[in-house]
Design a binder for these strands. Structure first.
Length: 672
DNA sequence: TTCTAAGATGTTTTT
DNA sequence: CATCTTAGAA
């Protein structure tokens, strides 16, 4: 088991005497270290698998880790091992302890969009605002939660009108969540921390459950996550964390890379092991990465080296526009695949923002290249998925007014805004949910008989469905429910074409299948898992991937730079190497270039054999052609290692097209 | 209350 | 440009 490790890696695995920090450069085999260490703990240290918890940040990483541990430790021995995301761990804790925290079983989990729409509603109602500060407020609330600052404290700390407003919304928002029997993503960490702080007995129980903890991508932990780890670990110090400050790309969501330093302060006995040998990339690629990241300040110095051979030059391709860029990448992959005798799955295309995948998708389809886009909010942002999720949520948690509103007129139940408004105020006065208000007699006073009747009918129907769901097989009850509301018919009525409706319905089926699958998996691990738990799990997106990954067919992988972290591919294409895009506009504006540089670094270090960077001279934005400047990061790479293509002739062409565009707009403004 | 059509508005990254 | 919002008519 240990024979495949180098001395440093082996040290990291074998040291179990106290807290350990592994500073692992990109491609230095950190996943091997974690997975081997888990196996080592089970086999050599006699720690039971169900007493070990390993946490990461993405489902993808968690899944891969689980898989690799599975290869080292046979089925029985690995039973009950926890390998999950932080959020999943938090969800599990809240699930088991919801009563103490004051939540009812079946509590809803609000995703990003639910949160946004609630905040929007609150701001519309109680505060006069209309600008796009909603996103900002949402971000501020999230930050407060991550820093474990309560609404009252936030109110006290506020230094200007904007912050006072946001803090006031925060207070309202939290009250509403409570009333809805709902939690949001940040609560998944915050509530367990609060629980453990306030209830030493419960903390002790969990400390007995988790004897050893491993944290991957430690530089991405935020204040509350670090505190959660610290609480669980307690005085024992049975902890291994692995991190790399050069790969810290989540500061925007509260990650505190300083936690790397803080660990040493909090645990004076901390041992530090550095992994500096890279087993992934050719030395040219590695040199490019090193040169680039040298422009950033560093907490811990480390020098990555590799024995993988020099490899090919890094290619930089400049194209006319985004269309040409996408096409070039696709044809490039086609020829490369033949020349290198590689498979499609050896290639990955990385980009800064999800929207960039669209053009690529079109071109890939045009050339009939099999591909897979991973990550992105697309699936859960879809209408049909939101609708059904709404039904699922209200099914297990009737107090979820958010879900109630989503679902009430889907399909048409002829209950309009004014009726809902009245129902809302009534429910508010009585401090009950809208669903419960429907069955109250007092309603007749403010609403007409007709309206009340409609509400009652919905109320009865849902109540009946709920009973069916809890008495019979939940999944078939849910299938029946979808049939009951004739969702398929609704889709056909509201879709532009029958094909679109079919595709949407297929998505619904995927959702229900995944729910079934998730439920089964959870019950394998824990008999007490119920349909409510599986639904909450769905919101964390911990399953679509599983399904998709199971048929790990031969496809080109597309993803954002963020979700590429932790992965590797023989051939990597990074598209959109332009100012305002790779150092993203907003980051340039608020001076966050360093994190963007790390992002580029992460992208570059994904490549094993070849790396290709592409850019477009022009790009369409809001329907208008814009000229693009090459990314400053290109200038920060060693020039002698780069092979440029199409750099020179572009400016002329660009100028000509710009001239024509100007002429066109002039013609248009003259009404020609 | 629902439907329609013009208008505005906006694209970072994730659980 | 593509999506979502809002205003006005049926």
């Amino acid at each position: 088991m240990l024979s495949r490790l180098n001395p440093r890696q082996r040290e990291a695995v074998e040291y179990v005497g106290g807290p350990l920090l592994v500073l692992a450069g990109a491609g230095s085999g950190k996943t091997s270290v974690i997975t081997t260490k888990i196996a080592y703990l089970i086999k050599e240290c006699g720690i039971k698998a169900h007493k070990i918890a390993a946490v990461t940040f993405t489902n993808k990483a968690a899944r891969e880790m689980k898989e690799r541990v599975g290869k080292l430790v046979q089925g029985k021995e690995s039973r009950g091992l926890t390998v999950s995301t932080f959020h999943n761990l938090g969800l599990n804790i809240i699930r088991k302890e919801h009563k103490t925290l004051g939540y009812k079983a079946g509590f809803s989990l609000f995703d990003d969009q639910d949160t946004k729409s609630l905040i929007k509603d609150l701001m519309h109602k109680d505060f006069q605002t209309d600008a796009d500060i909603i996103g900002m407020v949402q971000h501020m609330i999230s930050n407060w939660k991550n820093d474990l600052i309560e609404p009252e404290q936030a109110l006290g700390l506020a230094e200007n009108d904007k912050e006072t407003l946001a803090a006031a919304v925060y207070r309202e928002y939290d009250r509403h969540l409570q009333a809805y029997n709902a939690v949001d993503f940040d609560d998944l960490i915050r509530l367990p921390v609060r629980l453990f702080r306030d209830h030493p007995d419960i903390l002790e129980r969990w400390q007995n459950k988790i004897h050893y903890m491993l944290v991957d991508e430690y530089q991405d932990t935020n204040v509350s996550q670090y505190l959660l780890v610290k609480l669980i670990i307690g005085y024992r110090g049975a902890l291994t964390v692995v991190g790399d400050d050069d790969q810290s790309i989540y500061a925007w969501r509260g990650a505190r890379p300083e936690n790397l330093v803080k660990l040493g302060e909090d645990f004076p006995s901390l041992r530090i092991v550095k992994l500096e040998q890279n087993y992934r990339s050719t030395s040219l690629i590695l040199r490019a990465a090193n040169t680039l990241i040298a422009n950033n300040p560093h907490v811990y110095e480390k020098t990555l080296w590799s024995e993988m051979g020099q490899g090919e030059q890094i290619r930089v391709i400049s194209c006319r526009n985004e269309d040409a860029e996408a096409e070039r990448v696709v044809t490039e992959i086609l020829t490369h695949r033949i020349k290198k005798d590689a498979s499609y799955k050896d290639f990955s295309i990385l980009y800064r923002g999800n929207h960039q995948s669209r053009i690529l998708e079109i071109k890939l389809q045009a050339f009939q290249v099999p591909y897979k886009i991973s990550g992105g909010t697309s699936f859960f942002a879809r209408h049909e998925i939101k609708d059904i999720m709404g039904y699922l949520k209200i099914l297990v948690n009737p107090d979820d007014d958010n879900a109630f509103l989503r679902v009430i007129n889907m399909p048409r139940r002829e209950i309009g805004p004014s009726t809902l408004e009245k129902l809302g105020t009534y429910a508010n006065q009585r401090h009950i949910s809208m669903f419960h208000a429907c069955s109250e007699l007092g309603l007749e006073q403010s609403l007409s008989e007709k309206q009340v009747d409609k509400l009652r009918r919905f109320n009865h129907w849902l109540e009946k469905t709920r009973q069916r769901c809890y008495q019979d097989d939940s999944i078939s009850a849910i299938r029946e429910m979808i049939h009951d509301i004739d969702y398929e018919g609704w889709l056909h009525q509201n879709s532009s074409s029958p094909q679109v409706a079919e595709r949407r319905m297929a998505n619904v089926r995927i959702l229900v299948d995944s729910l079934q699958d998730t439920l089964k998996r959870m019950q394998d691990d824990d008999d007490s898992a119920s349909i409510e738990d599986a639904i909450a799990r769905l919101v964390l997106r911990d399953m679509m991937e599983q399904q998709a990954e199971e048929d790990d067919s031969d496809r080109v992988q597309l993803m954002t730079l963020h979700s590429a972290k932790g992965l590797e591919y023989p051939h990597v294409y990074i598209v959109g190497m332009e100012e305002d895009l790779l150092p993203h506009r907003n980051s340039i504006d608020d001076g966050n270039i360093e994190e963007e540089r790390r992002l580029a670094y992460v992208g570059i270090t994904r490549a094993r054999q070849t790396l290709t960077l592409t850019m477009a001279a022009q790009r369409k934005q809001f329907g208008e052609m814009l000229n693009c400047t090459p990314s400053r990061f290109l200038d920060e790479l060693p020039p002698e290692d780069l092979a440029w293509e199409g750099k020179e002739q572009e400016p002329d062409k660009a100028k000509r097209e710009r001239g024509r565009a100007a002429l066109d707009s002039l013609k248009k403004s003259l009404g020609l």
